[in-house]
Design a protein around this nucleic acid. Structure first.
Lengths: 147, 147
DNA sequence: GTAGTTGTAACAACTATTGTTACGACTGGA
DNA sequence: TCCAGTCGTAACAATAGTTGTTACAACTAC
């Protein structure tokens, strides 16, 4: 019950994909295909294309269509933070309020929503500040250092 | 798709329940029943009992069984932080790694897990630091101030 | 043209969350 | 001693999010 298998792995996959493209381009290739990326990530190419579509809308990646098509970075790895990636994949809120409106006649039921919202806003801000500290260049450096 | 209706509302409900018990006790009552709390939260009493069972195991609440039974706080509201509540409900990780192991032959596939884990650890630490800043006494004060 | 790839819809499998019913366990008071 | 009220918890349904998969139209370098 607590294993939470369904927690978002999208940030992980998106960072993986972008880092892979970045390294591939540094090795002299122009574009990377969703098939190649999917092999490294160990998933289906459509999963990669779906994610990269969002990253493309956010201005982090670009695609080329037709024959010899594929993906490339829109910015250098050093200019992409994990916060950029996080926002690109449009994450839902970390915490939710009540599913059903609590009793408005009750003092607590009436005031708990705004009170918790204020806290949750601060928490998400802290989370974003932390994600902004790391660039994909940092991630790649970590990866190469450990290899 | 992005609305994330299924995000955890457990922290909200748990904070609501404990704050309600605290206020109820300050008004001279000994114990609060899951039925009363459920009315304020606008949910089923079993949902409240399930949550309070976890809070009880964590030492935040106590229950009395038999006739005239119900729930009471194990500590004052001022001595319970939202971090205490968060840990009591055993939240899953905010971010997940890959569902399927990425390609270990690939440099990125091999090193991305540890690299992202380090970041995620920092993010969760920041989240916990933020939650630790607020006590249920603070939450109650906010609620009463807005009323 | 044609081959190769993207973009995206559609659907299935799996899981988490929440709500609900049911019922045994427990205990204060008649 | 019995009983009424409440907890503790199992079991199941409804809903929805995530991921994997197939399919196919759109596009373009050669």
């Amino acid at each position: 019950m607590e294993s939470d298998v369904s927690a978002n792995s999208r940030l992980t996959i998106a960072a993986h994909a972008l880092t892979w493209i970045g390294l591939y381009q540094r090795r002299g290739h122009e574009v990377a295909t969703s098939e190649q990326i999917a092999t490294s990530v160990n998933t289906n190419p459509v999963v990669i294309r779906r994610l990269l579509a969002k990253l493309s809308k956010a201005g982090l990646a670009d695609s080329r269509r037709g024959a010899g098509a594929g993906w490339m970075l829109a910015r250098d790895l050093a200019a992409i933070t994990l916060l950029d990636v996080y926002q690109a994949i449009e994450p839902g809120p970390v915490f939710a309020l009540h599913r059903a409106t609590p009793d408005p006649e009750c003092v607590v039921g009436h005031g708990i929503g705004p009170a918790m919202t204020a806290v949750y806003d601060d928490v998400e801000a802290a989370l974003r500040r932390e994600l902004a500290k790391t660039t994909l260049e940092d991630v790649l450096r970590d990866i190469l250092k450990a290899a």
